[in-house]
């Protein structure tokens, strides 16, 4: 990463995450097709809902004939972490117009958020519309095309997991987390490690009684509170 906030630097820095979108997008297309969705509906879901892991939730709930309201509610819960990410990101775009703010928010993903947070460490804590929007659009286009390709491929492949592609997303979070840990100087390194350790324990214990649709949001809220308390008491 460098300190430039323009279209070429965004394109270059988004490239590694593209492979994650391709892996998961193709897998989603195959899973959707296998569940009985047409390539048209698979692609429409990627265009309109555009919600990564939540799209897998939708497909699995459609298969079990869940009521529409409970599908919508589950997706809201799974994606409610977006509220936290947008709230974290919004202050960096205060000077941009409302339309540009809405555009950045509309195509925001876990990965573009994490990428943007990493970028802050190289740009003296600045972000702008052209950089972020480029990263967002590359991700959006890749996601739509890959899920369409997956839905078409679905006629030939039934088990996408065999190739380990589903790990692309997890590897991406590992990479982005590590890069964030070593480059974010605003929080003490040991405190960051302690918060990560806390998250591990909280996820493990939370899995016992919290539905996975709510778990990420709840654990994030508790871990942030824990981080603030630790910072005040020990750091």
């Amino acid at each position: 990463m460098n300190n430039e906030l323009n279209v070429p630097s965004a394109a270059k820095e988004t490239l590694p995450t593209v492979f994650g979108y391709i892996g998961i997008g193709v897998a989603f297309g195959i899973v959707g097709k296998a569940a009985g969705l047409s390539p048209l509906l698979v692609t429409l879901m990627s265009i309109i809902t555009y919600a990564g892991s939540a799209q897998f939730v939708i497909v699995s709930m459609l298969v079990t004939h869940s009521p529409m309201l409970s599908i919508v509610l589950s997706v809201f819960l799974v994606n409610s972490r977006m509220i936290l990410m947008s709230t974290t990101l919004a202050p960096y775009f205060k000077k941009e117009s409302l339309l540009k703010n809405v555009l950045v928010g509309t195509l925001l993903t876990d990965e573009s958020f994490a990428l943007g947070m990493n970028k802050l460490n190289y740009t003296d804590n600045r972000l702008n519309f052209s950089w972020f929007n480029t990263a967002n659009i590359i991700a959006y286009a890749t996601w739509i095309i890959s899920s369409l390709v997956g839905a078409v491929l679905g006629n030939f492949i039934s088990n996408p997991e065999k190739f380990g592609l589903d790990f692309a997303l997890i590897a991406m979070f590992i990479g982005l987390l590590y890069l964030q840990l070593i480059s974010d100087k605003s929080i003490n390194f040991n405190l960051q490690l302690i918060v990560v350790g806390f998250v591990l324990v909280a996820i493990y214990l939370g899995l016992i009684f919290i539905p996975s649709s709510l778990l990420i949001l709840l654990v994030t809220l508790v871990a942030c509170t824990f981080g603030v308390v630790m910072k005040h008491v020990f750091f």
Partner: peptide, 28 residues
């Protein structure tokens, strides 16, 4: 300050959730 912990908390939560298989009522 609360939000400054969001990136590492969310990224590690998304990672760790994939390391376990949930069985409601029992240890994962």
């Amino acid at each position: 300050q609360f939000l400054s912990f969001v990136p590492i908390a969310i990224m590690s939560a998304l990672w760790f959730e994939n390391l376990f298989i949930q069985h409601i009522g029992h240890l994962p």
